[in-house]
Amino acid sequence: MNFFRLLGDLSHLASILILLHKIKTTRSCRGLSFKTQALYVAVFITRYLDLTYRWVSLYNFVMKLFFIGSSCATLYLMRYKYCPTHDPSIDTFKIEYLVGPCAILALIFNYKFSVSEVLWSFSIFLESVAILPQLFMLQRTGEAETITTHYLAALGIYRAFYIPNWIYRYFTEGVVDPIAIVAGIAQTGLYLDFFYVYFTKVMQGEKFELPA
């Protein structure tokens, strides 16, 4: 564990707490993509299957359980509890276009051609693009509640913090994880437009609005 990875994980943790806080306090999941949340459930379940056979640390164990549990809870809240506030007509990104290519990539790029390793690769690739339905929805509506933008910023910053972590680990441990690195850089890249608007507008106290 190093400082960058800890910051990344805490940012990831914060993003989920902000998301649940938004849903609970506004009693609404308006502005949130159900598809993106469903993809995160798939990401966490396929990646954290190793909970059942690999012990890393208590920290790792608790965080994995939290990410699986909270993503399922979010999906439940969106699907049942606050269902009427979710508008499927603007959440129209075709997730087949994400899941299919990620599955193919995972079959080609993996560290071992085994079920668990291919699923791990799949989860890494899928995570890198899972935000697209949400960003697509944001693009369509052209604006977002401030709390939703804080959620997205924390979620985007999380993977960005992993990049210095990988550089650090390369020099201190000699460990290189090319699949995670390439996907992580791509994932962070997808947020660049969002970050620009977030830091130039929301951080200055303005509302998040995209130019028409």
């Binding site: 994980d9 890393v56 994880d177 699949i179």
Partner: peptide, 10 residues
């Protein structure tokens, strides 16, 4: 495998 990846990250 070529890479000694630890899978110890989240």
């Amino acid at each position: 495998s070529r890479f000694q990846v630890k899978h110890d990250e989240l």
